[in-house]
Design a protein around this nucleic acid. Sequence first.
DNA 1: GTCTATAGGAGGATAGAC
DNA 2: GTCTATCCTCCTATAGAC
Lengths: 187, 187
Amino acid sequence: MDDARTRLIESTRELLWERGYTGTSPRAIQERAGVGQGSMYHHFAGKADLARAAIRSTAQEMVPRSRAHLEGPGTPLERLRAYLRAERDALRGCRVGRLVQDAEVVADASLREPIDEVFSGTLQRLAAVLREGQAAGEVRADVDAGQVAAALLSVLQGAYVLARAHQDPARFTAAVEGVLALVAAPR
Amino acid sequence: MDDARTRLIESTRELLWERGYTGTSPRAIQERAGVGQGSMYHHFAGKADLARAAIRSTAQEMVPRSRAHLEGPGTPLERLRAYLRAERDALRGCRVGRLVQDAEVVADASLREPIDEVFSGTLQRLAAVLREGQAAGEVRADVDAGQVAAALLSVLQGAYVLARAHQDPARFTAAVEGVLALVAAPR
DNA sequence: GTCTATAGGAGGATAGAC
DNA sequence: GTCTATCCTCCTATAGAC
């Protein structure tokens, strides 16, 4: 049986995903966690403190997932495809990317930093695989791997936006397939 | 001299951009517009009604801008570059894309539809230019124009996310240049 | 058209009892 | 550790006077 602290973090993670930081209230967190007011303020200093714990937790969770694909088996291009095509909940959006739209998150360094770090790490791993792919002749060699890595990560983040705007997960897939087609070296 | 109605829409547009729908209050709108409570509720039925007017206004404004680049002078590839490299406030985010992260916006069809339409229109124009470029040999011919159009628009939307996450506009530029390099047919 | 008054509820947090 | 009481402000809107 989970303790109150754990349940509070978990419900905060969910609410941050669904409603964002501004849209998430301590009251809602407590209710979803089934935890009282006093308990919440015993374990955490307040909303920002809880969000900090929740964001760190979510961010940490994403690292092994991207590594599993990008540093897994297969040729470099196969690994890129595996990562980009990994199952994602297109209509729900990115648990992490979603948060940086929020002015209050960006204004608070301790909330923004964990996000900054996940993206930086992913960017580096993507660039490394791209360079491998270039060496292997699978990926176009006449492009800058760092810039293309940024483009790939941006496609994922932006694809969520398109999918939500149209309320259609197919938009997500289209964008991903579009950029994958471009990355592969022409035959 | 602007009337109250106009100023209300304008201040709502600004606040939606800065704080999102959930983070924008009628009170803040009135203060920024220099308009009283009674005046606001005289001209608009409430927050959602104001947001509807503001979102429509912002969305309408974006159409001629994209057309200016995509249907302007130059070769197809030059026009794509002009559009993607057009000056954007990377750290502020997209006036329109930003809104779609907001659960309340997505839940209200009358708020989401104007956004849906801008994106759909842009997507079609991008795809058309891409096909022109393919015919002209400037753009890789072995890719699906519709998918690549989705990828291009996603890069823009996602590049805002990266720039905000790192608080660095250079991330935006890197992503854009990365995808532009990929779109051009290899020599 | 615009102003002021009013209102019930939510947001975010503190205090002290148990 | 958790509960209840309490607090002040903001949110969003309505009512009615001017």
